[in-house]
């Protein structure tokens, strides 16, 4: 497949995953802030922004509704949901011939939905419902992708983008939130930290899944274990890396003229690290550093994908 097309599919998928993550975290945070004292609002908001991986932008202006509104609809803000949806659609438009008509129509409908004035009205009236409808649109797209697209290289690049983005986002979220998890400040009462833990799980749609594995008995260690090392839950980092590993494998097998040794090694290493680590070892060491290392490796893998599949030099390709 064309390198440019692979690149666009990969980014289309990353953008959508990012938008979905932002919507979910925003929804959870708005909900949590109902229980937050007025003096804590700004800190809580900033923690969410940091959890989305944003250092700058989104300066707190005192009104949660305004901030949330911008987070969804401000198309000049790269962290906003609308920016990501537009980015995904723009990428899809550039590879319109690669994706199925059904996929395109779902994505296009989502794009027109979030860009319509009605969506803004609906947000003012019931933000949660609007956000749910956006997430629905994304689920529809993902389902359509899996059922109407050939599961060839293009589909694998979509998976690769989805899983790398999700692994990176979950690692960021955990890294930002882990100080609060393990050292709750003295004045925080226990029901607050319970809510925070539920919020963290909800940010990854994993509250119910967690309960199935550990019952509703929430503890920071287990939450971290679940989101980091669970093998079967699609939002756990380990699951995502397994998925990305499979996708790169499949891409490599479907081509076969050149083998991406460095990429195989890097993703294999991360895959093995998550597969053969226990939560005790992580907690015993430095969890923040562990999470940070995962993020660094995700970035490195992203670069290697580019170097091998998208921006390779002509000389190296002719030599084969």
């Amino acid at each position: 497949m064309l390198s440019r097309v692979a690149d666009s599919l990969y980014w289309m998928s990353r953008y959508l995953e990012r938008a979905e993550n932002t919507v979910r975290q925003l929804d959870v945070t708005m909900n949590l802030m109902l229980d937050t004292g007025p003096d804590q609002l700004e800190a809580r908001w900033l923690r969410m922004v940091a959890g989305l991986g944003k250092q700058v932008g989104m300066v707190w202006n005192g009104s949660l509704e305004d901030m949330a509104y911008n987070m969804v609809f401000d198309s000049s803000e790269p962290a906003s949901v609308i920016y990501c949806v537009n980015g995904a659609r723009e990428n899809a438009r550039q590879v319109r011939e690669e994706i199925s008509t059904e996929q395109w129509q779902r994505l296009n409908r989502l794009f027109h939905h979030i860009n319509s004035p009605q969506a803004q009205d609906q947000f003012r009236a019931d933000a949660s419902e609007l956000m749910a409808s956006i997430v629905d649109g994304m689920y529809l797209f993902k389902g359509t992708t899996d059922t109407t697209m050939i599961h060839g290289q293009g589909w694998q690049f979509i998976r690769l983008g989805r899983y790398l983005e999700r692994a990176y986002a979950t690692a960021t979220l955990l890294e930002v939130n882990q100080p609060q998890l393990f050292q709750p400040s003295a004045d925080e009462r226990s029901e607050y930290s319970y809510l925070e833990l539920v919020g963290l799980l909800r940010s990854c749609t994993s509250f119910e899944a967690y309960c199935q594995v550990y019952t509703a008995d929430l503890s920071p260690d287990r939450v971290l274990e679940f989101l980091l090392l669970n093998r079967d839950f699609p939002h756990a980092i380990r699951y995502c890396i397994d998925g990305a590993h499979e996708a790169t494998d499949a891409i490599q097998r479907s081509g076969g003229r050149r083998s991406p040794d460095e990429l195989t090694a890097s993703i294999g290493r991360l895959h093995a690290m998550l597969g053969f680590t226990s939560i005790r070892e992580v907690l015993h060491g430095d969890p923040a550093a562990f999470l940070h290392a995962i993020r660094e490796q995700c970035l490195h893998i992203h670069e290697l994908i580019y170097r091998h599949y998208v921006q390779y030099s002509i000389q190296s390709a002719l030599a084969v």
Binding site: L2, R4, V95, E97, I251, G255, R257, R258, I314, A317
Partner: peptide, 22 residues
């Protein structure tokens, strides 16, 4: 395939497109 100019290269008077497989 739908290609743009930037997907194409020529070498020895042969036109190639850049794919993930070279």
């Amino acid at each position: 395939d739908l290609v743009e100019g930037r997907d194409l290269v020529t070498h020895d008077n042969i036109v190639y497109m850049r794919t993930t497989d070279g």
